[in-house]
Design a protein around this nucleic acid. Structure first.
Lengths: 256, 256
DNA sequence: TTGCTCCTCACGTCACGTGAGGTGGC
DNA sequence: TTGCTCCTCACGTCACGTGAGGTGGC
């Protein structure tokens, strides 16, 4: 039996290459346009025809892209001498570490979401604030429903602290472990809520609040106090704002 | 002591809000432009002034964005009625599941990155191909250096199979466990490499190769054979192409 | 006065997706 | 002939970034 002539099979067209590499023709043309993949030869009808090297390079690009690596960075690695693979190795290790950190962040976030979903009734920050206070032996004030100003304060704390209102309270453990805190703070809160503009006792009340606050070394404020002031300004009466302002002054003076 | 008038502190400006929420003024303006965050009131000089609700909503947006959730999806979550507690709970559960999936994806991604880092230490596909064959008791042919066609074949297999050349060999375990494979295949390979166009034994050789291949039920081809043909066409002689073509025909006939 | 912040266009970026309108291959 | 693939513009998308040129606030 004689051997027949076996003609050269036509090389790959762009669609076939795209399928093999698990991508689209548009992506391949885009890689050509930015010079990441060199343009192959055309056949008689102007179609691009691809070979082995194109496939190998494209698959490498897609592998790195599946790691969300930017094309520019991919280009640097693929244009680098194949002998300098140490650099790529180091980059990949750093990438793995970065992903590891992202995983940890997401796990913490997921736990927080689950905690929130499972926690009692998944209530508003103000209610969770009071519940967390009760868990520390504080009744959270005499009223069942907090005044508007304190409700808004809970909202802001919940938004600003990474751990939510629960995180704020956890960070204030030094304050909360103060002996007799419940007995001492609740009368102050009642007086604060009843403050009127011509109340002569504003500075007196601020002083008594300040006496309850721990030294700065033991507890930095959990959130930006000036921002809280600007946000909550319209939720308190002028007298209450005055009292809070005086309280901040007293603490600042003491810390100097 | 008389209480002084305590003026309303000005509300937050866009830069302060951005800092508190850990984002940029541009992002906030963008959220306004697409209606994700409503435009706040302006002060006398036209500056936007923000309050508590804006902060709370923006922080929620940023939290979800940090999960890479598209803004459109975020909008759907945040437009849900806050009074429907059951719905909110369900939303949070879904969110936790979503985060869980993202964690799994990232873990798989991290593993792929580490695998990739490990595989770059290894040599060219052709060398890894021969090393893997030796691990199965095959010497990988008589030559130290593979002919160009077989080197290119190794490149293509490595690119196309998710597990690289090692994955191809693992998938071909049925073939590799064939008794006396080494003794039977190596003479065939030598004859294949020496094929000439007028070699009358082309079909004979193809038949002997086919006899070594397992039945289709036991092993589907690990990669697209037609694509391999188009890619490697120019790396083999006409006689070799003829032989491979005949081999594919024989296997296809047998499988019908 | 100086440096900082804010304002509104409006164009740029990244990695493609999506027609539009036309031709080649089987 | 029909349906599929390919070709080249060229505009769209997503989530902002980045000046440009001007004004307000302290």
């Amino acid at each position: 039996m004689r051997a027949e002539e076996s003609p050269l099979p036509p090389r790959l067209r762009i669609g076939e290459l795209a399928n093999l590499a698990g991508t689209t023709t548009r992506a391949i043309r885009y890689y050509h346009s930015i010079g990441l993949l060199s343009e192959p030869e055309r056949d008689d009808s102007g179609y691009r025809r691809y070979g082995t090297e194109d496939l190998v390079r494209l698959v490498r690009i897609r592998r790195l892209r599946s790691l969300d690596m930017p094309l520019e960075q991919i280009a640097q690695h693929l244009w680098g001498d194949p002998s300098e693979h140490g650099d790529l190795q180091a980059t990949l290790r750093l990438l793995a570490e970065d992903i590891g950190r992202q995983i940890e962040e997401l796990q913490a976030l997921r736990q927080r979401v689950l905690d929130l979903a499972a926690s009692t009734t998944l209530a508003a920050p103000a209610d969770r604030w009071q519940a967390a206070l009760r868990a520390h032996g504080l009744r959270g004030g005499t009223t069942t429903r907090l005044p508007a100003g304190e409700q808004a304060a809970a909202d802001v704390l919940d938004a600003l602290h990474p751990g939510g209102v629960e995180g704020v309270i956890a960070q204030s453990s030094a304050l909360l472990s103060e002996p007799q805190l419940a007995a001492r703070i609740e009368p102050l809160l009642r007086r604060f809520r009843a403050l009127t503009d011509d109340d002569a006792a504003i500075d007196q009340l601020a002083g008594e609040f300040a006496a309850l606050l721990p030294r700065p070394a033991q507890a930095a404020p959990p959130v930006d106090l000036e921002a809280m002031d600007k946000l909550l300004g319209d939720r308190f009466t002028s007298a209450q704002r005055h009292c809070l302002h005086r309280l901040r002054e007293l603490v600042a003076e003491r810390d100097r």
